[in-house]
């Protein structure tokens, strides 16, 4: 894991993008979006988290094994969420 040394310039640019996205997401919360607040907020969150992961956490230059750990954790999180939530979303269709 001795990837290339990230120049400070990259860090500053990513930081600027993160702050801008934070301001956007807070601004959006003042709009009358009703139930879509969560969707928009989480989507912006995904972008921000990807920036932190790729640049601050050096995923961009990390080994395949590290990527495997990241992708596995997201895959398993998907299993947990999709299969659990699908139960709740289909309960009303047929009562028994």
């Amino acid at each position: 894991m001795s990837g290339p040394i990230t120049p400070t310039r990259t860090y500053y640019r990513v930081f600027a993008a993160l702050i801008a996205l934070t301001l956007v997401t807070v601004y959006v919360s003042f709009l009358e979006l009703g139930p879509w607040h969560t969707t928009v907020g989480v989507l912006i969150g995904v972008v921000k988290a990807s920036l932190v992961g790729l640049f601050f956490m050096h995923l961009l230059h990390s080994s395949k094994a590290s990527w495997l750990a990241v992708l596995a954790s997201l895959f398993w999180l998907g299993i947990l969420m999709v299969l659990t939530i699908s139960d709740y979303l289909t309960r009303h269709i047929l009562e028994y």
Partner: peptide
Amino acid sequence: GQSVYSALIF
């Protein structure tokens, strides 16, 4: 008491 559809998939 889970949904019938969920039970089917599982």
